[in-house]
Write a protein that binds this DNA or RNA. Structure first.
Lengths: 147, 147
DNA sequence: TTACCTGCAAAAGGTTTGCAGGCTA
DNA sequence: TAGCCTGCAAACCTTTTGCAGGTAA
């Protein structure tokens, strides 16, 4: 990432925090900078280690809380909502998933159109493609009712 | 699932086990039947609870081992390879992911074609769509070299 | 000044591992 | 019979929670 776009993103971050009424603490800034620095979809412990040199007193719990806050406010996002539990699929036919980000319910969808989606050349360039699925992240009707 | 297709799948299961030189133990059969019974992409503990009435002595570790074995032999599959660690994405532009199922490396892909994929009507029917991403599950070149 | 935020520590939750004994093929 | 499979228990790893003190606005 070049300097201009980093500065731009940092300004945007400050603006987003103001709008969301989030304090811009040194810890939050450090975590956000670590995220900008990263290029590999970091896990909380990677962020923690990356922040540690410039912030030796930060705690693991704080990193978790900050990341969750950022996610809640649309500043960053989880790569998958299904990170906290192993889920198995017995169906072998090619299909796709609707996933409720709140209750983690998973619904299958079959769609010929989706099955035929264009596979970008970079996918097969260096990798052995096993399969692909489209994940539709939603809030399901039950969870909407609860809010 | 109707009886015919259940019987068919069970026969297929037996055949797959033979080909993979897997013993067909009562425990494995019970777990497989529980998977067929399920319609909600069960987690290991859901499978465990589902098997328990007909198999009160089965252990949690066995369920995990059986599910892993089934996955390794293509009998079932994980809904996401990223279940064992939270991963964050700082990029807000719409994009998609190449995921190595071995080392869990994640690579971004941008593609206008993928962004425009047809969203099945059932997705928006009852749910509030937040976003969607295509997950390309691969074995990356580094991991292939290791094997 | 006040509500929000951090840091510590402990707990919780999910998954993996090692090993001894038992069962399938 | 031999090697694979199970069940138990403990360990491990990640994530969450409660609370007391500190800090941003």
């Amino acid at each position: 990432m070049n300097l201009d776009s980093r500065t731009e993103l940092l300004n945007e971050f400050v603006e987003t925090c103001r709008q969301a009424e989030l304090s811009i603490t040194p810890q939050r800034l450090a975590v956000y900078k670590a995220l900008l620095r990263s290029d590999n979809h970091p896990s909380p412990d990677m962020i923690y280690k990356s922040v540690l040199p410039e912030f030796p007193t930060i705690s693991f719990a704080t990193v978790y809380k900050i990341l969750e806050t950022f996610d809640q406010n649309g500043i960053i996002s989880k790569v998958t909502a299904l990170h906290n539990k192993l889920r198995y699929d017995p169906i072998k036919e090619h299909h796709h998933h609707i996933i409720c980000v709140k209750c983690k319910k998973i619904i299958d969808i079959k769609s010929d159109d989706l099955d035929k989606l264009p596979i970008p050349s970079e996918v097969k360039e260096d990798n052995e493609l096993i399969d692909f699925t489209v994940h539709f992240n939603v809030i399901c009707s039950e969870c909407r009712k609860k809010d």
